[in-house]
């Protein structure tokens, strides 16, 4: 563990960004990753600890012209309880229901889950399926500068993102799915939630006349980041959703993933799970 020389807990975004602009700082949100990672020596503190929890403007779920905007400090519990998410983006709600434990959901923030960029991060998979982008803010000469980046581009590697050190993740934006949208989320394991995913997957699309249009498939824990399986998506979008097409999509997904072996599962087993569970989920969509 390294020393923290300064601790700041600003109340406004502008103040927080000024701190980030003035030198290296470690951002603290819910702390559910930061605390154990720093104790285990996997993360070293920057000289300044910047607690962003006091910035109320970063909290909450709201409709915006592009769909929905979720503040970075929104906790997993708030997402779980949010009516808009429940009605319009159930895939995200399901993922939140399979996230850690009640205590952790109460503390953990969406921004923290995204910035932690674990390949197994549970919100990343549904957000990829929803086509979400992240909004990053920094202090510019004329006030706050914001930029938007598709989530898939933000996630660079395990624990690595495209965030500059002077930037704060302020929100996640996602278009709201159209009518006829169906989605599924599946986290593999024997426990309902308090479990790091050995694999997770989400599927979404618009079911119309036997076809899954605009099909989306995303996986967690089978590649260095959570990923979309675009080849498999293309296969699905090309024609009616039937067993043969599902088999081809599963094959295509298999070519996309790059699982590793660790204490939770071997690469071989992760592939088998992707096969069997993607097929199961797609069959379920097909039968629905």
């Amino acid at each position: 563990m390294t020393e923290i020389r300064d601790y700041v807990a600003p109340r406004s975004l502008a103040d927080a960004l000024r701190v980030l602009a003035s030198g290296p700082a470690t951002v603290l949100a819910g702390g559910t990753d930061l605390m154990p990672q720093s104790r285990a020596g996997r993360v070293r503190f920057a000289p300044t600890l910047l607690n962003v929890q006091g910035i109320d403007e970063l909290r909450g779920v709201a409709r915006d012209p592009g769909g929905v905007q979720i503040g970075a400090l929104t906790t997993i519990t708030s997402l779980l309880e949010d009516p808009l998410i429940r009605d319009r983006a159930p895939v995200l709600r399901t993922a939140c229901d399979h996230f850690a434990s009640s205590q952790i959901r109460n503390a953990a923030t969406l921004g923290g889950n995204i910035c932690n960029a674990s390949p197994a991060g549970d919100t990343l998979v549904p957000l990829l399926v929803l086509g979400a982008s992240v909004v990053l803010a920094s202090a510019g000469p004329e006030g706050i500068v914001k930029r938007r980046l598709p989530l898939a581009e933000f996630l660079v590697g395990p624990g690595r993102t495209a965030r500059r050190t002077d930037e704060l993740l302020v929100a996640v934006q996602a278009p709201l799915p159209p009518a006829g949208w169906v989605d599924r989320y599946l986290k593999f394991g024997a426990r309902p939630a308090l479990d790091i995913s050995a694999i997770a997957l989400a599927v979404g699309g618009t079911l119309r006349e036997g076809r899954l249009e605009d099909a989306r498939i995303a996986f967690g824990a089978v590649a260095p980041t959570a990923i979309r399986a675009s080849e498999a998506e293309r296969v699905l979008s090309e024609g009616p959703l039937d067993r043969a097409r599902i088999d081809r999509a599963v094959e295509a997904a298999d070519a996309t993933i790059r699982p590793i072996s660790d204490v939770r599962a071997s690469d071989w087993y992760r592939r088998e799970l992707v096969h069997n569970l993607l097929r199961r989920v797609l069959n379920d969509v097909c039968d629905a």
Binding site: A9, N106, A107
Partner: peptide, 14 residues
């Protein structure tokens, strides 16, 4: 709301 106090920074109790 319940949280795991082992994961919370004490300063955040302020």
């Amino acid at each position: 709301r319940t949280v795991n106090s082992c994961l919370m920074f004490a300063v955040d109790c302020n």
